[in-house]
Amino acid sequence: MYPSGSRRNHTNGDPKSLSFESFLEAWLVRQKRYLEELLSAQHSSCEVRQDDHLELIHRVLYHYQQYYEEKSRVANWDVFLVFSPPWLTNLERALLWIAGFRPNLLFRLVSSSVNDMTEDQSRRMDRLVAETRMEEKALNDELAKIQERVGAPPLANAIRRYGRTAQDGETADGSGDDSALGGLRKALEKVVANADMLRATTGEKVALVLTPPQMVKVLAAVAQLQLKVRGLGLQRDAEKGQNGGN
């Protein structure tokens, strides 16, 4: 079985993949520590000052910002990697939406972890949900247009050549791309950047609606879900490996 959080030997020696995998393992260790802090603050909320809650929230949000910054560097080097990232488990990859989590998932966690919102908070949250769904749809439409372009013969041929290069172990750094594949890269880089921006801003906007103790609950729920999915994915991949991939 893999060590906790580890996906070693699944990056085919790709330097950028290996670099991000190392970053992610360290990031997940910090994520577990933050979860412990969040749960501690949540369970002793009456004794914790609001300033302490805010300080913890800011540190956790910055923790996520570091993830997006590092992921952006990989996407700019080879955007295809973030659409099927070898550092994630099969289960995690199955849940991806434009190379990350769907922003509306955050609202489900708000609903399940916060039961004391005021009427004003509920109205503001409903507006935010509607706005986020519209932005998600716009990104879905943008991605659909890109996928339609992939079927064009020149682009399909370019992608096949890219695939053969990757299989041969050559570095696919985007240099020497023909115009079709280069255009696809730029379009995908843009949609991933916009999706990551939506993920980040959704979290920030939710934090503006909720009180600090409420946001602590939500951030704890987010970390618990992520680590649970990660752990289950590692377990399933290990079991599949032991069974010969069947």
Rank of each mutant, 00 (worst) to 15 (best):
Y2W: 03
Y2P: 09
P3F: 13
S4V: 14
G5C: 01
G5I: 00
S6L: 13
N9I: 15
G13E: 12
G13L: 14
P15A: 12
K16N: 13
S17R: 02
S17T: 07
L18S: 08
S19N: 15
S19Y: 09
S22M: 12
W27E: 01
V29C: 13
V29L: 09
K32D: 11
L35N: 10
E36W: 09
E37F: 11
A41H: 07
Q42L: 08
S45V: 08
C46D: 02
E47C: 06
R49P: 15
Q50P: 10
H53D: 01
L56Y: 04
I57W: 00
I57E: 00
I57N: 01
R59C: 06
R59P: 03
V60S: 07
H63M: 11
Y64G: 15
Y68H: 11
R73G: 12
D78H: 01
V79Y: 04
F80V: 00
F80K: 00
V82A: 06
L88I: 12
T89W: 05
T89G: 12
N90E: 05
N90W: 04
R93C: 09
R93L: 09
R93N: 09
L95A: 03
W97Y: 04
W97R: 01
A99S: 03
F101K: 14
R102Q: 05
R108M: 06
R108W: 08
S111H: 15
S112M: 07
V114P: 00
D116P: 00
M117V: 13
T118P: 00
Q121H: 15
Q121R: 14
S122R: 10
R123H: 09
R124D: 04
D126Y: 03
D126L: 07
T132M: 02
R133A: 13
M134S: 08
E135H: 12
A138P: 04
L139C: 08
L139E: 05
N140H: 15
E142M: 04
A144R: 08
A144M: 14
K145H: 11
E148R: 08
E148C: 08
V150N: 14
P153H: 12
L155C: 02
R160E: 03
R161Y: 15
R164C: 05
A166E: 00
A166Y: 00
Q167W: 09
Q167G: 11
D168W: 11
G169M: 01
T171V: 02
D173Y: 01
G174H: 01
D178A: 10
S179H: 12
R185K: 04
L188E: 07
E189C: 14
K190V: 06
V191Y: 04
A195W: 07
D196R: 02
D196S: 11
M197I: 13
M197S: 03
A200I: 10
A200R: 06
G203Y: 10
V206D: 02
L210K: 06
L210T: 04
T211S: 10
P212Y: 11
P212T: 13
P213K: 15
P213Y: 14
V216S: 00
V216E: 00
L219R: 04
A220Q: 07
A221D: 00
A223Q: 10
L225K: 06
L227R: 04
L227S: 09
K228R: 07
V229D: 01
R230A: 10
G231P: 00
L234C: 09
R236K: 12
R236E: 04
D237R: 11
A238L: 02
E239D: 03
G241P: 15
G241K: 06
Q242E: 13
